[in-house]
Nucleic acid binder design. Structure first.
Length: 180
DNA sequence: ACGATGATGAAC
DNA sequence: TTCATCATCGTA
């Protein structure tokens, strides 16, 4: 079958916003004892560096956000509101805190819903994206053009002042339902 | 519109 | 050790 390429660290070791954009149309693959699920990524958000007031890394490294400072292509999974796991993949060079939050997959709308549905939690935190961790991302040859997505402000970060307005959220437009 | 629900981080 | 906050969601 055509392309089914595991994304390697080099893909993630680039500017965060570029990685976020390029993750649209890629496939998140989850493998557990229950089997394998692969779903297309439809919405992401970039969190970029020390200056980004919306980022957990804005106030420096802590135990929780340490994966953001580590090598690219690792998972950063944390709990919000006492009950929801958020799935991020780290980007950029070691020492530069950045990550991309995966907000929506095909048929799974919402960052907390997708982790719950795919049984993703603290166990994946800090681990590399790859088959060994049962969680990775594949390029399956879907080409996304600029006309197919929108850039919008990030969700739930109103506290971040000017940074809340930055168009760091990438959302695939709905599939064109028209025939011909 | 609001409560759930608990880890995190900063203040004390 | 205490306390406000929180990259959300389900129910109303």
């Amino acid at each position: 079958m055509p392309g089914r390429i595991l994304l390697k660290p080099d893909f993630f070791n680039r500017p965060t916003v570029a990685v976020a954009r390029d993750l649209l149309g890629k496939f998140l693959v989850r493998e557990t004892g229950a089997g394998r699920t692969a779903l297309m990524i439809r919405e992401v958000e970039a969190y970029d560096g020390f200056g980004d007031r919306a980022s957990h890394a804005h106030r420096g490294m802590t135990e929780r956000n340490a994966p953001m400072f580590g090598p690219a292509g690792h998972w950063y999974v944390y709990l919000v509101y006492g009950m929801h796991w958020m799935l991020n993949v780290t980007t950029g060079p070691v020492g530069y805190p950045a990550a991309v939050l995966i907000r929506r997959l095909e048929g799974l709308d919402g960052p907390a819903r997708l982790t719950r549905s795919l049984d993703i939690d603290r166990r994946s935190d800090g681990r590399p994206s790859g088959k060994a961790s049962g969680l990775w991302i594949e390029d399956r040859g879907v080409d996304i053009r600029p006309s197919q997505y929108r850039r919008l402000p990030r969700v739930g970060v109103d506290y971040a002042g000017e940074w809340a307005k930055k168009p760091y959220r990438f959302v695939l437009r709905s599939p064109d339902r028209k025939r011909k």
